[in-house]
Design a protein around this nucleic acid. Structure first.
Ligand SMILES: [Mn+2]
Ligand SMILES: [Mn+2]
Ligand SMILES: [Zn+2]
Ligand SMILES: [Zn+2]
Lengths: 154, 154
DNA sequence: TGTATTAATGAAAATGATTTTCATTAACTT
DNA sequence: AAGTTAATGAAAATCATTTTCATTAATACA
């Protein structure tokens, strides 16, 4: 029914049926700065669409991930987080993750050096271990601005 | 009671009471090539020490981690894996993770380039975001030798 | 514009890793 | 050897995610 995002992303073919939950979930992901958990998306939806179940949020996120539309990020707090793949972050962006509150900050600094090293490493490791490399993660773990203050034991 | 590892690692002070479960769990970690899950450790123990509970395995692993004795690695299969910190792997070693079977392979290639990039990035990001960086992960995801063969859809 | 087909949904139950609770045991102090 | 209390183990609880299954509704097409 709702066509806000359907045409925009030219997904109708790959997606199957374009439903209201799918449209609304995509909308939430579009508006936010990213790194939302399934529960956070569900909560954001709830006031305007109390009918949409958490199960559907999970299923839709998995669908979007399969289509390469969003990226799933493991957070040390135990719940997965999801972010839309946009023009800017599409190529290469990595994460600064707060061990206390789970906040995730994107960064793209040193992308060139990083890419160079990643390519070199991929090539060598793929050969050495006969491993098919599909993706990589680089992340820095620590304490965010806020959490540095609120005392410090992890 | 058992003193196999207690003295060896000079842990008695920091650890509190040195118990048989702690000794045996450390022994399993020492013997293995690393990257064991709590359940795998429990299973390895079971034949010789059926009395040791899975709960104790979890508690002991958390203790060892707090003491910096082992490293905890998140695996995409949903269970955490643990490896002893040894002389070789202590400094810097990263992971090749199979998305299908969860196998984790250590690598240390390009450690110098990596370290250089990591330091540069850490410095810049810590300033830029007022973030206290405590650790980092670099990992390559894909399919291991075995899993490449057993067909290919992820 | 109906109507049929069946993919998508939502509620509830199941799963599976990890954590908590609490009564019992045993490591270490004296 | 005895007392103190940290550590343990079994069972229950938690919590994110997945599965089940009956119902709904998006799309194709008459
Ligand atoms: Mn991101
Ligand atoms: Mn390792
Ligand atoms: Zn934080
Ligand atoms: Zn594999």
């Amino acid at each position: 029914m709702p066509r806000r995002h359907c045409a925009r992303h030219g997904l109708r073919e790959q997606v199957g049926r374009w439903t209201e939950p799918r449209d609304v979930i995509l909308d939430v992901l579009s508006r936010s700065k990213g790194h939302l958990s399934a529960k956070e998306i569900y909560d954001a939806l709830y006031s305007s669409h109390p009918g949409i179940g958490l199960t559907t949020v999970y299923r839709t996120l998995e669908l979007f991930r399969r289509l390469g539309f969003i990226q799933k990020v493991a957070s040390p707090d135990g719940q997965a987080r999801y972010e839309l793949r946009t023009e800017e972050n599409k190529g290469h962006h990595h994460h600064l993750i707060c061990l206390r509150c789970g906040k995730i900050i994107d960064y793209q600094d040193f992308a060139d050096e990083e890419l160079e090293l990643v390519k070199k490493t991929e090539k060598a490791l793929a050969q050495k271990h006969n491993f098919l490399i599909l993706d990589h993660n680089i992340e820095f773990l620590g304490l965010c601005d806020k959490c540095r203050q609120a005392a410090g034991d992890i």
